[in-house]
Structure formats: C-alpha cells, structure tokens
Design a protein around this nucleic acid. Structure first.
Length: 283
DNA sequence: ATGGGGGCCTGCCGGC
DNA sequence: TGCCGGCAGGCCCCCA
C-alpha cells in the first residue's frame, strides 16, 4: 500500500519527533509481523538514541546510537502514528491501545510512536548500520527514482530486451525502487503508454520520457502528503491528498481526462494486480 | 533466466 | 441485517 511518497511522508513526519531523541522503552506486542522480529528487539532498542532517519525505497531506516539500524517496512496496511504530543502541538492524542498496535516506541521527549498494521505484511529488523545497505531486503533494490543514478540512459538500458509488460517492469523493485501499483498507473497515463505494452516494443525515446514523469508524479505526491485510500495516514493522523489527483487509478468507467479524448478508463488484471488505463490515449 | 501465479493476513464494500 | 465473494498501496517464493 504505502509506496515511496507515503513512506517519505512518514519519514518526514517522524524526523522532528525522533531525531536526536532517546527510545526509553519499546513495547513489542507480538513476536512477528511478516517475519519474526529480531532477537531481543525491545532490549536492543531501549536506551538508544535515534541519530538519523533515512529512507531507501519503501523502507524507513532509523540509525541508532548503538551502531545498529532499525529497518521498517509498512507492507500493505502499515501505519505509524505519533502521540503523546512531543512537539507541544494540538493534534489529537490517542492514548488507548488499538487493535493491531504491534510495536510502540516510547521516547525521551514524551512522544510515542506506534506501528499499527492490520494485515501484518510489514516488517522490522535490526542490522549493523555499516551493513544496512547489504541487508537482504535492500541488497537487490534498483536506483532511487528521485536520485542521480536514475536517468534516461539507465532506464533505456535496464528495460532493453525485456518481454514483460511495462507495468510489471516498473513494479520490479530491482529495476526502479519505490514505485507501486498506483503511481505506475498514473505514470503510464501521463506518458500515454499502455500498461499492456511489452517493454521491448516501446521506442527508446518513449522509455526515456518516463523518467521525468516518474520524478514529477512522485514529487507531486510527496508534496501532497501521499495518497490516502483506506488506511494510510500521515504520522499526525492527517490524510494525504494526492488521491484527489489520480487520473486513472480506481477510476474504472469514468471518462478519460485527456482533453478531447472520448475514452473510458478500463481496469485489467496483470499478474494479479489491477491496472487502470485509457485504451484510447494509452498505446 | 525471467515471468507469472500463489500465498501471506485482515478489513471493507457491494450484492443478494 | 447477514453472509459471501472480491478486492486492497507489497513482496517472497516456487514453478514452468
């Protein structure tokens, strides 16, 4: 569920509350999410200070004064909410423990950071900070779409000779890290490329045109605080609002927004995921 | 080697 | 009102 813009929004929300702040206690309310938590996770977190909060693809990385890094993934339904009013603001507190509050970090500034994940496809792990990039979950990730190594030449080369539909290729985290179902649909709409088109049947020039559009869509979504469908929230509980700007995602049956296009947005299933697109102007 | 489908979980929504 | 099927922002794993 949370794609790069949602994860970046969560990271940005946590930053002023957690950076330079001690974790005084960690409540670990179950033994696992998608996988078992690392051994003695609560003890290894307790008494450490968060020295930096980074993001790699859809992972949040919290560097700790202990020399370890906490890796967090939100899966499909993971949420992180701040409570306890650590910044002295007015946002609503939610002191009661709610269903699916699996991990709670208590902070030295009085704040609490709660990880809630109904479907439990999320994950947490601890690894030495100097080995974080080599963690098995991160090792084979492709370039960051908003970073310098992601560019036209890279994408043209990375997609060369692939027979998979472009939709699947852009969802492949080894090729580009951070896109998910929503933003791939929106990117393909803006570039006029059908999600069904085989990657090796797209001219280099059109592949290259994906690069600035990917950057634009992600940047706009980050600026909007991400997209809130059912359960995603920013860390202060506010909704993101990029969902109002979707042009195709979840708009099956609606008229295409391209000027003068008479198309109707279609939904097709590709490798188990819904693709939304306009059959008229996406070719 | 690569691509497609199944599976992991819970919750929600629409239809009957 | 209640039940059931389908679907959901991700990603690992196995099979062809």
């Amino acid at each position: 569920m949370p794609e790069l813009p949602e994860v970046e929004t969560v990271r940005a929300g946590l930053l002023p509350v957690m950076e330079g702040v001690e974790i005084t206690r960690a409540d670990v309310n179950r033994p696992d999410l998608r996988w078992p938590f690392p051994d003695r996770m609560a003890e290894r977190l307790t008494g450490t200070t968060v020295t930096a909060l980074r993001r790699r693809s859809k992972y949040i990385l919290a560097d700790l004064s202990s020399g370890e890094t906490l890796i967090i993934h939100l899966g499909m339904s993971g949420r992180i909410l701040i409570s306890g009013d650590p910044l002295g603001q007015f946002h609503q507190d939610h002191p009661e423990r709610e269903k699916h509050d699996h991990v709670v970090f208590h902070l030295g500034n009085g704040g609490r950071v709660t990880f809630n994940d109904p479907r439990r496809f999320g994950a947490m792990d601890l690894i030495a900070t100097d080995k974080a990039e080599t963690h098995e979950l991160l090792a084979s990730l492709g370039p960051e779409p908003l970073g310098n190594t992601f560019n036209e030449a890279y994408l043209v080369d990375a997609l060369k000779g692939r027979r998979t539909p472009i939709k699947s290729a852009l969802l492949d985290q080894r090729i580009i890290a951070g896109l998910g179902n929503i933003y791939v649909c929106e990117v393909l709409f803006r570039t006029g490329i059908s999600p069904l088109r085989k990657t090796d049947q797209i001219a280099d020039k059109r592949v290259a045109a994906l690069v600035p559009v990917i950057r634009d869509v992600l940047s706009e979504a980050i600026a909007a605080g991400g997209s809130s469908l059912k359960d995603y929230r920013q860390t202060d509980g506010e909704l993101g609002y990029f969902q109002h700007r979707f042009q195709v995602y979840d708009r099956e049956g609606e008229p295409c927004q391209t000027p003068d296009c008479k198309g109707i947005i279609s939904r097709v299933t590709q490798s188990g995921r819904s693709s939304f697109y306009c059959p008229q102007c996406q070719r």
